[in-house]
Design a protein around this nucleic acid. Structure first.
Lengths: 142, 142
DNA sequence: TAATACATTATATTTATTCTAAACTGTTGA
DNA sequence: TCAACAGTTTAGAATAAATATAATGTATTA
């Protein structure tokens, strides 16, 4: 309950009324120093395991999307059957291990700033994401 | 028919027998200087409009996936409901215009080489993709 | 050219996501 | 405080992309 006030604020700023379910979602997402990656299904499972509150898929989808729109969460661009989300909304990038279906953060400091020289008339860049796919390194040859 | 021999070769190297349908798919994908982006549905539509050959979704999926595995096509990492593919398999990046659901190439020359300092034990980098989301630039303030 | 192994197809299945509509709850103002 | 309203939750239905299935057809080979 420590952060309830913040969560109510976050929800209101996202245009959502603070309800039991939504506050529970906030607790799972933001009640820790550590950021993490998740899918909707995983988030539902975490909530089920942590609380005696029942939350429907629809509510979770709605809330997550509202937070993304507001910038409190980020969707990670990937070619996976499910969408992956990130509680870390600071500027950083990702490794994606397709063999293990695992995402790993790459800190901003570990990549030089991506500087794109090309521009598109009437458009501005909203975000720049680097996705580096990694695979098992079965001994470099020789 | 000009490139039939190449296509048969591409198919065989991908572990596929050259059939009418698959050669038609090759013609649509590779019978031009220009590279392009496509979804499976779009590809099926192009084939239907160009040929009197009927090709099922399943065949198109199978063939496209075999080509991706072999490196003749690339899948573009995105959060869209459908998968987007690219006939340009050279090293380059993309703008994604979410408002118009449109992909635009960014040539290698228009981005500095992305140099990732972090490494993951036992893993090597297979590919590095930059996705820059763009939105309408409704006048920069002031 | 016959036998075999692989392909094609229509259709069914699976699964993530979105939609719907009925029941419920937070909010507002009297 | 409470009634009325607007927004919310939910189970289940709907949608749609992608994959699987199995019967029929075709390329390959010896």
């Amino acid at each position: 309950m420590a952060y309830a006030v913040q969560y109510i604020d976050k929800l209101r700023k996202s245009g959502l009324r603070p309800t039991k379910q939504r506050i529970k979602i906030c607790e799972v997402l933001f009640d820790t120093d550590k950021t993490f990656h998740f899918t909707i299904k995983e988030l539902v499972k975490i909530i089920e395991n942590q609380a005696n509150i029942k939350v429907s898929l629809a509510t979770v989808y709605n809330t997550v999307h509202a937070f993304i729109k507001k910038g409190y969460l980020k969707e990670i661009p990937l070619n996976a059957s499910q969408s992956y989300y990130d509680t870390n909304v600071t500027h950083h990038h990702h490794f994606f291990d397709e063999e293990e279906n695992r995402l790993i953060d790459i800190h901003q400091d570990d990549v030089d700033e991506v500087n794109i020289k090309k521009t598109i008339p009437g458009k501005k860049i909203k975000s720049v994401e680097v996705i580096a796919k990694i695979v098992s390194d079965n001994q470099s040859q020789k």
